[in-house]
Structures are given as C-alpha cells and as structure tokens.
C-alpha cells in the first residue's frame, strides 16, 4: 500500500455477495488514479486499519450494512463522533470496526477525520457479485468521492 494523506479502506468478503461492496468501492477508487490517496482492502483483518490510519489525515472506510435501512441505502457516519455498532464477531481473534476505532484512540493513531460509508446490502449469500441496487449505490459513492478527492488535489496543487 502506498502512503497518502487520505486512506480509503474497504472491508468485506467479495465471496459473500453484497458483503463485497466495501472492497469493490475501494478497488474502483484505487483504479481512479486519485492524488495523495492510499487504498487498503481488508477481507477480515481489521487490525490492519489501525496501522494504516497512522499515516492518514483523513480516512474513509467502506463497509456493507445489514439491518440499517433499505437495500442500497447509503449512510455516512462520523466514526470519531458517533459510536459504531458492536456487531457480532465471527472470530474472537479479530476486531470489529468499533473495537478498531477504540484501540486506535487508545494508541493515538486515529486520523483527524474518519468517516464510515456504509451501504445496506440485500443478500450475503455465498458467491461473487453485487445486487444491482447495491452496485448502483457503490457507483454513487465512487462518483461523489472521486469528485471530492480530485477537487482537494487540484486545490492543493494549484
């Protein structure tokens, strides 16, 4: 992972349908050649986020949501201001995002701005591929962030 002022991190499992929306968004933004951006994809090892946050001023974390709204709905949560849900873990040997934020805070390794962008999924069944409305929501997120980050880059380099 190259270092940059903005970290874009996708969390999820591409082999569990809409759970793959986080990596899918992160992957698309990596290919967008944005300035001063580092991209990280976490299949499950959320601990890596803590190390990656260390060098970032701003971080966006993309993840699938379950049970927070209608499929395809997008939530933007300021993860430094608002408590994240303590979802059940599939392994005690890994952390959830809320724990990672808490540990990052204890270690003074949080970025100045940390935003969770969550996309409500429709299905988390086995297999690759996103539901149409989830992919459409992902494209909206990519378009929005690409414009925002390109604009920031242009301003800084002007």
């Amino acid at each position: 992972m190259s270092r940059g002022k903005t970290l874009l991190a996708g969390i999820g499992n591409e082999w569990r349908s809409d759970d793959g929306i986080g990596p899918w968004i992160a992957g698309a933004l990596r290919d967008a050649d944005l300035p001063d951006v580092a991209v990280l994809v976490c299949a499950r090892e959320v601990l890596e986020l803590i190390e990656a946050w260390k060098g970032a001023e701003t971080a966006f974390v993309f993840d699938a949501l379950c049970g927070a709204g209608q499929p395809g709905e997008v939530l933007h949560i300021d993860a430094l201001e608002h408590a994240l849900p303590q979802q059940a873990l599939c392994s005690s040997h890994s952390l959830n995002l809320a724990d990672a934020v808490a540990l990052g805070r204890s270690l003074d390794q949080l970025p100045e701005r940390l935003t969770l962008i969550g996309v409500e999924g429709r299905t988390f069944d086995h297999g690759r591929g996103l539901s149409p409305e989830i992919e459409a929501a992902g494209r909206r997120v990519i378009k929005m962030l690409s414009a925002e980050l390109k604009q920031e880059g242009t301003c800084e380099h002007a």
């Binding site: 090892e45 601990l47 890596e48 803590i50 808490a102 204890s106 270690l107």
Partner: peptide, 24 residues
C-alpha cells in the same frame, strides 16, 4: 481486554500489532 490495556501500555500493543503484521 487489550483495548483497555493499550491506554496504559501503548508501545506494547503497537509492537504486538506490528509483530502480528510480520506473520501476516
């Protein structure tokens, strides 16, 4: 837990995370 421990022993936990990253 480690999160609480990290407040008093941040360097210890940072080293642990880096050690795990070496294995990974």
């Amino acid at each position: 837990d480690a999160i609480t421990m990290a407040k008093d022993h941040p360097d210890l936990v940072k080293d642990a995370l880096r050690l795990k990253a070496v294995g990974n």
